[in-house]
């Protein structure tokens, strides 16, 4: 049974369009300059499912943090729904790479915290939290503290927390990285179902090329030093997709080869 907060229609259709224009960012790390992002541009339509793949350190998390509004670029602009981002917002939900559950709160309270600043009655919020706990398969662990969870369970609780306020733009940083393959493919399907139901925009970072192709409308491949987009793959196959479909396999090989050639070039 879904609850009223879950069933009410998405607040605003067509929300969650993103325009990243010429974004650059450098960090100073131990006296060296790291070009985390170098004139990255990307337009994302409302309702699109985008995956970002690329080797470690190519700026994926940095880009996601900019979209969330936790950090800003040195130059360039990021526009979401026509407005420049200047701070975090519940309309842009982020699931961090390191789950970041608060150690002093139970699973339930951690998820509930993301509804703290959302309107709605306590009862509605509790139902929404329970619905999400069931959805990510943590039933029975409502009262557990994060240190009592496995890595994968923590990750799932973090996903539930990210989903709870129903953000029109959902930012996921390797959300399924710590999961076993069975839970992983189950949650991939759940993610697709949520995306189709909520009509939200999803930007997901992943290391798993197959996962990216399985889920996304477009797969953005990035490369490091300096962090930039090397190629964007349109995935046109109708959903549900099959991983042994010839077109699927071809795309996977192309992306894998591209990532492999980057590796050679950078070594």
């Amino acid at each position: 049974m879904a609850d009223s907060l879950t069933l009410s229609p998405p607040k605003k259709l067509d929300a969650g369009s993103v325009k990243i224009a010429d974004v650059s960012k450098t960090f100073r790390v131990e006296g060296r300059t790291v070009h985390a992002l170098d004139s990255v541009s990307l337009s994302i339509e409302a309702g699109e499912f985008i995956s970002i793949v690329g080797p470690s350190g190519c700026g994926k998390s940095t880009l996601l943090r900019f979209l969330a509004g936790l950090d800003g670029p040195d130059s360039g602009r990021i526009i979401v729904d026509g407005e420049a981002i200047d701070r975090p917002s519940l309309r842009r939900g982020i699931v961090f790479q390191d789950h970041r559950l608060l150690p002093w709160f139970s699973v339930e309270k951690n998820i509930g915290l993301s509804l703290h600043s959302v309107s709605g009655s306590e009862v509605e919020k509790r139902e929404r939290v329970q619905y999400l706990i069931d959805l990510v398969g943590l039933t029975g662990f409502e009262k557990a503290l994060p240190h009592e969870l496995s890595g994968g369970m923590s990750q799932r609780a973090a996903i539930a927390r990210g989903l709870a306020p129903r953000p029109p733009l959902l930012l996921l940083d390797e959300p399924l990285g710590a999961l076993d393959s069975l839970t992983r493919s189950h949650l991939q399907d759940e993610l697709l179902a949520i995306w189709e139901r909520e009509k939200c925009t999803v930007v997901m970072v992943t290391h798993d090329v197959e996962e990216a192709i399985y889920l996304s409308d477009r797969v953005v491949v990035m490369e490091p030093r300096p962090g930039r987009i090397s190629q964007i793959f349109n995935i046109r196959n109708a959903r549900p997709r099959y991983r042994d479909d010839p077109e699927f396999v071809t795309t996977r090989r192309e992306i894998t080869e591209l990532l492999g050639s980057q590796k050679k070039k950078n070594h």
Binding site: S89, L90, F96, R100, H116, S117
Partner: peptide, 27 residues
């Protein structure tokens, strides 16, 4: 800082940030 960022991302008020993040972290 990661915990503070959670508070920012969830748009917690100053008071909620104090009671739900800063004070528990300071316990």
């Amino acid at each position: 800082a990661p915990f503070r960022e959670v508070g920012r991302a969830l748009e917690l008020s100053r008071f909620a940030t104090l009671t739900k993040i800063i004070l528990p972290a300071a316990v």
